[in-house]
Design a protein around this nucleic acid. Structure first.
Length: 649
RNA sequence: GCCGUUUUAGCUCAGUGGUAGAGCACUUCCUUGGUAAGGAAGAGGUCAUGGGUUCAAAUCCCAUAAAUGGCUCCA
């Protein structure tokens, strides 16, 4: 007999050889019908695989993340089966499930191509195969048999995969006539796959190595219900509507020009207003937090980067040096601000009493990103970091880290980013040699990060081996309203640059000590931050940031004078906006203001002029009634203040 | 950087080898209108750039650039 413990803690008994399906069926018929897999003592397995011993068992359905993975992984096999049917001789690479769907890498062979125009036919074939309700059958095979099978099939990629697998761990899965090397687990059968959509097609190197052959990767997604596919596609449409590249153009925030150069954004007046408000906001917060603003040039001599080590590592792949009339003299556009800041630190001897020294700069840096990597404002070749470097004693690292986290949280709250996680990147304990800095300091810094993150109650994930070679770091990952993940703020401990620049402070015993350096940027870069902010709020910026906070809309030309009076009053109170003087009807002016996402529309006509009031309309909400101009200003100001107080609390 | 796709008016996009189009935006005129598009007329294009094929190229071919979806990279 098998004792099966269910997630609710109850224990049920089953005959030997019982499967996950039997367990599901014993719980309810509906569960058995919807089950896609089973978790046995933490291991996700096929529903119909016998459970060998007493275990903790959870039935997985589409609603479990692991259930979705099995569902999509199985869908990838169906895609492969369809491709084999439609494109005989196709060679298969790998076909895993991913966060949203699955893909399969294929090699069509010389001269054959496939494009998104072929998708409908492939989708049709996949649905046809799915309807056959083929069982996914698992079988263990010996390495020799596996090699024989794929040699016979002349599938070089599977053979390559097999080379790295050990005998005894190899399993095949078969549905219909299609056999694939696969660890599983899979769905019981193909019938659950009711809706199929192939999404896009792309090149991908075999094993992710650009020295290898490039395969064709087909991305797709499947669902157990057609309705869910429709909803997913609607979500994609919504993401497109929020795309910062689209909104940036529509709202006239930024632009690019071939003549200026790829990846070099031009900030238009409205975008610049937004950006300056963000800068102003952070500048103030940083002054309060004890930072000292500094300004450094956009270029630095080659020597600076030889010292920092960046020349050796990135010199060849950077913007190439700027030459001068002096032979041999070379300058680089600065790819980061830290070397300059190190030189500021070195302008005078520092006492342990002076530390920490916090140098802050909105520093614009230039990096020659690969052409294929450029993407709107999130990946550019010239961008401004809200950078600062904290030079402190090793015993101050933790306190400084905590303060930086406070600052980042303050910034995120003020901007409405509630859903974020913090990733702690530590060194690989197996391979300590590849990191610079003493063991003792690393331990101290890693502890400092872990503890301060815990004290601040951050939701963290810890990644071993993800630290930079010069120090551990903490990155803030923000999810936008659609659940997409972005890396914004970062805090990094650095033992390398203080060493390379020979930074020192005088300790109480008069000895020379090495300070620790902390790089930090709450926004990361203004460019990426604005991009994420745009997508996060779909272009409806918080009132205090909105480039245009109001639009005065006169009913007709007769009220232009009064409109101007209203405008002057608001500008006097330091609100931002404009009067719509066009010869258009009020409906049209309202529509245009709504479309351009102006938070407040102030409609003025005869009534308003006579009574010294404005008729207020709120973006997305409509008419909110009329009030004296001063009341509007007061209510406006209290709203802005509330946003800032909320952030501080 | 690599693979695929795309590039036509300020914007969004039609146009499959034979006289360059639409809607919106813009200009002018009419209209002075009360909470999401008033009407009319006009102006606006080296069809990304450079080569080639052809009697003839926005259209077919090649190269370059940029954008875009991925891959690789990211101080």
């Amino acid at each position: 007999m098998l004792n099966i413990t269910l997630p609710d803690g109850s224990v049920r008994q089953f005959v030997d050889g019982a499967t996950g399906y039997d367990v599901a069926a014993a719980i309810s018929e509906g569960l058995a019908r919807n089950a896609v897999g089973v978790r046995v003592d933490g291991e996700v397995r096929d529903l119909h695989r016998p459970i060998e011993h007493d275990a903790q068992v959870a039935i997985l359905t589409w609603n479990d993340a692991d259930g979705k993975m099995a569902f999509w992984h199985s869908s990838a096999h169906v895609l492969a089966e369809a491709l084999e049917a439609l494109y005989p001789g196709v060679k298969l690479g790998i076909g895993p499930a991913i966060e949203n769907g699955f893909y399969y890498d294929i090699d069509l062979g010389e001269g054959r191509t496939i494009s998104s125009e072929d998708f409908p036919e492939i989708e049709k074939k996949m649905l046809e195969l799915a309807r056959q309700k083929s069982k996914f059958e698992r079988r263990a095979v010996s390495k020799a048999d596996a090699i024989a099978y794929f040699t016979e099939k002349a599938d070089p990629y599977k053979l390559d995969l097999l080379e790295r697998l050990d005998d005894g761990t190899i399993t095949f899965y078969q549905q219909g006539n299609f056999v694939d090397l696969c660890r599983g687990p899979h769905l019981p059968d193909t019938a659950n796959i009711k809706a199929v959509k192939l999404l896009n097609i792309a090149g991908a190197y075999w094993r992710g190595d650009e020295k290898n052959k490039q395969l064709t990767r087909i991305y797709g997604i499947t669902f157990p219900k057609a309705k869910e596919l429709t909803e997913y596609l609607e979500k994609l449409e919504e993401a497109k509507r929020r795309d910062h590249r689209k909104l940036g153009k529509e709202l006239e925030l930024f632009a690019f020009s071939d003549k200026v150069g790829a990846g070099l954004p031009l900030w238009l007046p409205k975008g610049t207003m937004l950006r300056e408000k963000l800068e102003q906001f952070l500048r103030r917060a940083q002054i309060k937090a004890g930072y000292q603003p500094v300004v450094t040039p956009h270029i630095g001599s080659k020597e600076l980067y030889v010292t920092s080590g960046h020349y050796e590592k990135y010199g060849a792949d950077s913007f190439q040096p700027i030459k001068t009339p002096n032979p041999g003299e070379e300058f680089f556009l600065k790819p980061m601000n830290c070397p300059h800041h190190c030189e500021i630190y070195k302008t005078k001897p520092r006492s342990y009493r002076d530390l920490p020294v916090r140098l802050a700069e909105f520093g614009t840096v230039y990096r020659y990103e690969q052409s294929g990597e450029l993407h709107g404002l999130t990946r550019v070749r010239g961008f401004t970091q809200d950078d600062a470097h904290i030079f402190c004693r090793p015993d101050q690292v933790k306190e400084e880290f905590t303060k930086v986290i406070d600052l980042v949280l303050y910034v995120f709250r003020a901007l409405g980013f509630q859903d974020f996680t913090a990733q702690i990147s530590l060194r690989d304990p197996e391979n300590k040699a590849k990191y610079i800095g003493s063991d003792e300091n690393w331990d101290k810094a890693e502890q400092a990060i872990i503890e301060s993150a815990a004290e601040k109650g951050l939701t963290t994930v810890t990644e071993l081996g993800e630290a930079a070679f010069y120090g551990p770091k903490l990155d803030f990952m923000v999810r936008d309203a659609l659940g997409r993940k972005w890396q914004l703020g970062t805090v990094q401990v650095d033992y390398n640059l203080p060493e390379r620049f020979d930074l020192e402070y005088v300790a109480p015993d008069n000895s020379r000590q090495r300070p620790v350096m902390i790089h930090r940027a709450p926004f990361g870069s203004l460019e990426r931050f604005v991009a994420v902010l745009i997508e996060h709020c779909a272009g409806n910026f918080p009132l205090w940031l909105s480039p245009e906070q109001f639009a005065v809309l006169p009913i007709s030309e007769k009220y232009h004078d009064y409109a101007q009076q209203v405008y002057d009053r608001l500008m006097g109170a330091e609100l931002r906006g404009a009067v719509d003087h066009r010869d258009e009807k009020i409906g049209r002016k309202i529509r245009d203001a709504e479309v351009s996402k102006v938070p407040y529309m102030l409609i003025v006509g005869e009534k308003e002029q006579e009574n010294g009031i404005v008729s207020v309309r709120k973006h997305g909400e409509g008419d909110v009634g009329s009030m004296p101009i001063d009341s509007f200003i007061k209510s406006f100001e209290s709203q802005v203040a509330a946003m800032m107080d909320g952030a501080a609390g």
